[in-house]
Design a protein around this nucleic acid. Structure first.
Lengths: 187, 187
DNA sequence: TAAAAAATTTATCATTTGATAAAAAACTAC
DNA sequence: GTAGTTTTTTATCAAATGATAAATTTTTTA
């Protein structure tokens, strides 16, 4: 649990009392490659912190899969849309490697945020960073064509590259897998 | 200032003491159509709340303009990337109507957040909503072609439509203005 | 290890969008 | 109100990507 605590403390110092209360709501889980952590149409109410493995955070449209983001070790994430809009999940979370993770209910986390100002500050900073990431993703999709986006991804995520299938990468870039294969052939 | 205070109170109740301290850092400003609120390469450190008018939040790539979002009345926003990554702004904020707005420094707002837990909670909720908006934008760009995105925009923003030029809308949708004109011709 | 399954590549044709130029329409300023 | 400016439309051709099918390579499993 050390990694998760370090992650929490990185932005704002969390008291040991708060950490203990956090530990009480955290569960450890594992899932095998290809397994589903949350389903479309489920009501997702948890946050997740991966200690080993990768997942894809994705959704289905007209039979095709689109990937919002990959999450690997030491990142906190969750389907906050489902929780905050109180609706069934549009998204799926699927393990693309055997994955180990911590999970806890957002509602209980929010209760702790109300009690511990420093945790609320952490949560706010966490949302700021999540937002900056999404903004960067929007601006890149608007500005660059698929070839450029592929090159950018390989530069920014050299380590992820070997752990992700071409098809998943294509679904992340927003093009077909055949199209990505063609782009690579013409480089 | 009533509208801004209502906006603040919508998610979490803010004490009158906190509101008074907030009022002390808020300035009222106006800008005429076409005017620039923040420049690329400036160091943006403020949040903004529009009371009248619209702005475009955009950036330039290779001579072309790309629009991340429009902000109209009663929305809080700012170039948080510039502030939180402590770097010169990639983005520009340009008025597309004569615009009146409040503005205050993020750093002083953060100070108040440290002092007033409820304001921190507001800030966190604000970032959650901003993040959900950006996620929705990503998923739409991935899933839909330009024609569908245009139709979606007209459905979701019927009022904005009359206040935005075709060129700006094209820059928001991520296609050329000529392309958008063609799409409309074939409907 | 062999067979089966899955992932990737290659090829062909259709569709969408971009680039460019020019015409038409709408808006602005004097 | 008219000239000038800006915005929008139309047209043509090029480039990028999608859809589909089939071949090839890689991975999985029995």
């Amino acid at each position: 649990m050390i990694d998760f605590i370090n992650f929490l403390n990185k932005n704002s110092k969390i008291s040991s009392e708060c950490l203990n209360e956090l530990k009480a709501i955290i569960k450890r889980k594992t899932i095998t490659k290809g397994g589903t952590i949350i389903n479309t149409n489920s009501h997702s109410k948890e946050l997740f912190f991966i200690t080993k493995g990768i997942i894809k955070f994705c959704f289905n449209g007209d039979g095709k899969e689109f990937i919002m983001r990959f999450f690997e070790e030491n990142i906190l994430f969750g389907d906050i849309e489902s929780y905050f809009k109180n609706r069934k999940s549009k998204y799926e979370i699927i393990a693309i490697e055997d994955t180990e993770y911590f999970t806890f209910p957002i509602s209980e986390f929010e209760q702790l945020c109300l009690k511990h100002h420093s945790l609320e500050t952490f949560f706010r900073n966490f949302m700021v960073i999540a937002n900056l990431n999404m903004m960067e993703r929007v601006s890149e999709i608007l500005e660059e064509d698929a070839k450029k986006r592929y090159i950018n991804f390989t530069n920014k995520n050299p380590k992820l590259l070997n752990r992700i299938s071409l098809g998943d990468l294509a679904n992340y870039l927003g093009i077909t897998q055949v199209s990505l294969s063609r782009i690579r052939a013409n480089m």
